[in-house]
Simulated assay, not measured.
Amino acid sequence: MPHSSRLDELRHPEVEAYLDGTETPTALIPVGTTEQHGEHLAMGTDAFIPTEICERIAEDVDALVGPPINYGASDMHAGYDGISYLNYRTLATVVRDIAYSLAESGFTDVVFISGHLTNDWAAKVGANQASHDLPEEHYVYAFPYWDALSGEDMEDYLSFDAGWHANIGETAAVMAIDEGLIDLESTSFDEPDLPEDIENPAALLDHLLIGKGAYYRVSETGTWGDPSEATAELGEEYFDTITHAVAELINTFQEVRDEIYQRKRPDRAQEQW
């Protein structure tokens, strides 16, 4: 690997050397937001965390990390001061065009790793569009980093028990990146009052939280969960778990995809792909 995993920090000859010397040239693209994360946590949280994950796993998956997309599909936070967001169609188009250009310039795999729930919806649409148009040797896909976690690990990090936004998980993770981005003395939190008589309260989340200004209507503080016990050490524990899971997911996909695709695809369909 070059001296840096960041595509924007490398000189052009270093990028050429990576592309020429790597069996599966892979670009990891963090997809974040600029939105409120309560009163204690930086607005760029959803970009900082996936960027850190990508940089930590770059060597393990033999990839370069592109600059993060710092604006996301976070219109549910409309109403809080100072936020900015893209609509879903725009973000999908941005993802698609980034994939086109990276594939054209030598990357066979382009992976978008999101730090915000609804970014993933738009990113998957953009990735799917790119996959339709690019030659079959290119692979473009998107997922939120927590998709790689087990149910038990997810329960500790993002859940009804741990909270869903600016909670202990996200707060600790950012503290592990830069404690100067946190002011735990400003911590306050609340929880939307979901009914207890529904079998699966998670079924209400999209209806209550997704849509312009939806989260603003249900959370006065902007924080869902109690982040007051967050520490940088806990954040490192989270990153150890998350980075291992994400790297394993990407490596496993690269190992099995060609065999699976070829086994599942009839020879007569070759001309159609």
Rank of each mutant, 00 (worst) to 15 (best):
Q272Y: 08
G211K: 05
I98P: 05
F143W: 06
E185W: 07
L194W: 11
H77C: 01
S105C: 03
I113S: 06
E196G: 15
H3E: 11
T108N: 07
N70I: 08
R265E: 06
I83H: 02
F112W: 05
H244G: 08
E23I: 04
F107S: 01
E220L: 00
E196Q: 12
T243M: 05
S74Q: 04
I49A: 13
D20H: 03
V94D: 02
S114Y: 12
T90R: 12
A92P: 06
H12E: 04
V15H: 06
I113H: 06
L204S: 00
E248H: 07
Y80W: 01
T187Y: 07
A127G: 11
T223K: 03
T171M: 15
V174Q: 08
W224F: 13
M76V: 08
P201S: 11
M154Q: 15
R257A: 01
V15N: 10
A202I: 15
D153L: 10
G115L: 10
Y216T: 01
I69C: 09
H244D: 14
I260W: 11
P30Q: 08
H116L: 06
L149S: 02
F112T: 02
Y141A: 05
G21N: 11
E59H: 08
H77R: 01
A230R: 06
E155V: 13
H40N: 09
P25I: 00
H40L: 07
L91W: 12
V218L: 01
I250R: 01
E233T: 04
V111W: 05
Y85A: 00
H138Q: 09
T252Q: 06
V140I: 14
L208F: 09
E55T: 03
F107I: 01
I168H: 04
D81W: 02
L41W: 03
L204T: 10
Y100L: 10
Q129R: 09
T26E: 00
H116W: 09
L41H: 04
G106V: 02
E179Q: 04
M76R: 09
N128I: 01
P30G: 12
P135T: 14
A173S: 15
S114Q: 03
T45E: 09
A232T: 03
A166H: 03
H37R: 05
N128V: 00
A232H: 08
I242Q: 12
D75I: 05
G72Y: 09
I182M: 07
T118Y: 15
